[in-house]
Amino acid sequence: MILKSVCSFLSSIRLIVCCCLIIWIFAQPTTAASVDIYHNFKELRSNTVENVDYKIETNVTDSDVIIIAIHGGKIERGTTELAYALSSHNDYNYYSYIGLRRKGNSALHITSEKFDEPTASEMVSKSKTTLSIHGCSGSEEFTYIGGLDTELGNKIKESLTKYGFTVLDTPKNMAGISPNNIVNKNMSGLGVQFEISKGLRTQFLSGNNDKLKDYVLAISEAVNSIQIEATP
């Protein structure tokens, strides 16, 4: 009888542990697409139609800063809008690869380390400062900051915090520290990667212009302060 009770107790414990593990796994923040269908842009272009499945939007200025959203439009919603707002406010260069499909836009996702669309590659290679805007899951409002440009990244963290935004420690899988990541393929070899939660991006798209404006102002202050410090 005692043995039966012990076995029953252990089974209950195992069930609880398994349930907690499953909940933990699904609660972890991830990017919009965990497995890519296409390994590079050439492969994607051969299997899709430009201006039907996707489009590329750019604006070239005389700035040495570029803002990119390589999973824009309906792939990671809100990233194109933020990239455009940030570049427009400062007259930075702007690039966005935009998913247009009514559904199934996650299939258009190409990971940052393999994103080699020619226009994006050329524009980034000519920039000194690169900011790459991405979206991650999470109903709460937060931002992860990664990339190899840790000096600018830390400035941006401080500025966002000052403006009342939450910046969390970045998970390793979103750190953006690979030299092959397009954000780090500029003239300095250093870039800043943003991973912005769905909850915060939803606010940007909800008509809450004050929140989007404050976010743009926070980043702008940090980027422009670095540029002033670098001026001889």
Rank of each mutant, 00 (worst) to 15 (best):
S96M: 03
E50T: 04
S63N: 07
S63P: 01
A83Q: 00
Y54S: 07
D62H: 10
I66N: 08
Y54E: 04
E57M: 05
G73A: 10
D62V: 08
I67T: 03
T80A: 01
Y92I: 02
V52G: 03
T58S: 04
Y95N: 11
E81N: 00
H71A: 05
I66E: 02
G78I: 02
D91H: 15
Y97C: 07
V52Q: 13
D62R: 12
K55H: 08
V65L: 02
S87F: 03
L100Y: 10
D91M: 11
N40E: 03
G99Q: 03
L100P: 02
T61F: 10
F41I: 10
N59P: 03
V49G: 01
V49L: 10
L44E: 12
D62E: 14
I67P: 02
K42W: 06
L82N: 01
G73L: 09
T61A: 03
F41T: 08
I98M: 03
T48P: 14
H71P: 04
T58L: 08
N93R: 11
Y94L: 11
Y95M: 05
T48E: 08
V60I: 15
N51H: 13
S96E: 04
T61C: 06
S96C: 01
E43K: 14
R77P: 06
L86A: 02
I70Y: 07
S46D: 15
L82Q: 04
E76S: 04
E43A: 12
S63T: 06
V60K: 13
D64S: 14
V52N: 09
